[in-house]
């Protein structure tokens, strides 16, 4: 057991775990059921991507990656804040039934964006 093997095996472990994490988060984003859930998934996606970039920085030896991770963190934070403002402004209307955390059938989910836009037009 020398230093290099320990490091490379733990890097492999970390990469595998983070990939699994990304997969689980994408599953949550696809499943929804509500818009805030998806926004939270996006936030988590950014957090895991930052971790992934840090691991890549170790694996490749390019320390520049750390700056990229920090920049990604900034952008992700701003994106989440903007989405939160958007949720506040938009309100609940298009998905009233989904509030209790129950899964929404897939067909309804795919049409959600369109129907929301239509609702807004109707209100005007």
């Amino acid at each position: 057991m020398n230093a290099a093997t320990i490091l490379s095996s733990s890097i492999s472990f970390a990469l595998a775990a983070l990939s699994l994490g990304l997969l689980l988060t994408v599953l949550r984003i696809l499943r929804g059921p509500t818009l805030p859930d998806r926004v939270l998934g996006l936030d988590m996606l950014v957090a895991i991507a930052i971790g992934l970039i840090a691991v890549l920085a170790i694996k490749s030896g390019f320390n520049l990656y750390i700056d990229i991770a920090i920049a990604l963190g900034l952008v992700g934070f701003l994106a989440t804040v903007a989405f939160a403002r958007f949720i506040l402004a938009r309100g609940l209307s298009p998905e009233k039934d989904a509030g209790a955390g129950l899964p929404v059938p897939g067909a309804q989910k795919l049409k959600r964006g369109k129907s929301a836009r239509r609702n807004k037009k109707g209100a005007r």
Binding site: G21, L22, V55
Partner: peptide, 15 residues
């Protein structure tokens, strides 16, 4: 690395 990635994957599982 191991602890950090474990926390990340557990957070995703919690999500």
């Amino acid at each position: 690395l191991v602890i950090g990635s474990l926390f990340s994957v557990l957070a995703a599982l919690g999500l």
